[in-house]
Write a protein that binds this DNA or RNA. Structure first.
Length: 366
DNA sequence: GAGACGTGGGG
DNA sequence: TCCCCAAGTCT
């Protein structure tokens, strides 16, 4: 039992000062202006593991391009990925469309108000289902994200591992018993998150003197604020050496499309290979594919950090012979070289989604 | 339960 | 430079 009855009593004192603070200090955010179910849904998906500042431009653009579930359900893959390019966790946008198609088929194109029904939709887990049902529909259901976890673990001076599902469930239960009904349910959830985002910040960044709940906070009283929330240490990410090729032919460059599953699924990329390839190795690769290098330039090394992988990158810029107008018919039979698409750099920006992992080797903008 | 899944900002 | 982390979900 992570939260004693004594602490549960204190939690009961939270809603009033918290809501008062929220109504005075809440940020004006695009999705708060007109919190329709669709807008709340899209914003919540974008906000998963992603900062408000990063989401802002994506949200407006997305809402303009795909203003409702019908538009989302019928959007083509390229449009979808382009709208998400740079946001990361690309399965989110695929799930968004899967869910939209389900909504069209089963729910008259609308988000259902019930937590349980929302939970069945792809991409919607307990947090998001709680957020949509409370914010858009005024249903009394908690929405426990990283902010809320931090706030509650501190208020109750609880050192349970917040990465554990049982901890999250316990917090949901504690909140369910103290949160208000109706319209205020959504405000309460947002207020908790807002407090975590603006005041009850991680580690040394916490601004306890500004906190509307400072007098109710057990961690503050015990001097434990900086140590909470507790998390099991993260495992080191694995390092992968890769070699990126910037292949140029006249004004065009070569890109290929990543497989539909896994890391950066379906996004476009510069051709790249495991390991750090020597010039000789790249030469034999290209020669086997029937391509004729004319000039070479070694590009500076770069490091790209994903959540679970680290790419240790080197790159080669290879100018192909202009005389090679047509690619050899067998080039895409070469298992070493993926099917290449030769495109103008301006078209790349216009129509293809490229993960930021390749930014270091993309031709300069101008 | 643990690992896959991105990116960029801030201390 | 390095490390933490941000409105999580799926397998």
């Amino acid at each position: 039992m992570p939260i004693s009855s004594e602490k549960q009593k204190v939690l009961e004192k939270i809603p009033a000062p918290l809501l008062r603070w929220f109504h005075g200090q809440a940020r004006q955010l695009p999705w708060r202006e007109d919190p329709t179910p669709y807008r709340v849904w899209i914003s919540e998906i974008m906000l998963q593991q992603t900062r408000v500042a990063a989401v802002m431009p994506y949200f407006s653009r997305f809402m303009t391009a795909l203003p409702d579930t019908a538009a989302l359900a019928s959007a083509d893959e390229d449009t979808l990925l382009k709208l998400w390019e740079g946001l990361g966790y690309y399965s989110r946008v695929r799930n968004l469309q899967k869910a939209a198609r389900i909504l069209i088929r089963q729910y008259d194109g609308k988000l259902p108000p019930d937590f349980e029904a929302l939970l069945t939709l792809p991409g919607i887990g307990r947090y998001t289902a709680g957020a949509i049902s409370s914010i858009a529909y005024g249903q009394k259901h908690p929405a426990v994200d990283g902010n809320v976890l931090r706030v509650i673990m501190r208020l109750t001076d609880c050192a349970d591992d917040v990465l554990k599902d049982t901890t999250k469930r316990a917090v949901e239960n504690a909140l369910l018993s103290i949160m208000p009904e109706g319209r205020q349910a959504g405000a309460f959830n947002q207020a908790l998150m807002e407090l975590g985002a603006l005041i009850c910040l991680p580690r040394k960044s916490a601004s306890c003197p500004d906190c509307p709940l400072q007098d109710l906070c057990f961690a503050r009283a015990a001097g434990h604020v900086e140590q909470l929330p507790a998390k099991k240490p993260t495992k080191a990410r694995r390092v992968e050496k890769r070699t990126v090729l910037l292949l140029c032919r006249n004004t065009s460059i070569a890109i290929d499309q990543r497989p539909p599953q896994g890391l950066l699924a379906g996004l476009w990329e510069l051709p790249n290979y495991g390991g750090h390839l020597t010039k000789k190795a790249v030469l034999s690769l290209l020669t086997e594919a029937g391509l004729q290098p004319a000039s070479w330039k070694k590009l500076p090394p770069a490091r790209h950090i994903f959540s679970h992988i680290e790419w240790d990158l080197i790159g080669w810029r290879v100018e192909l012979r202009e005389s090679v107008r047509e690619l050899p018919a067998n080039y895409n039979q070469n298992p070493l070289l993926p099917p290449l698409h030769w495109i103008e750099p301006t078209d790349l920006k216009r129509a293809y989604s490229i993960p930021s992992a390749f930014q270091y080797y993309l031709p300069d903008e101008n």
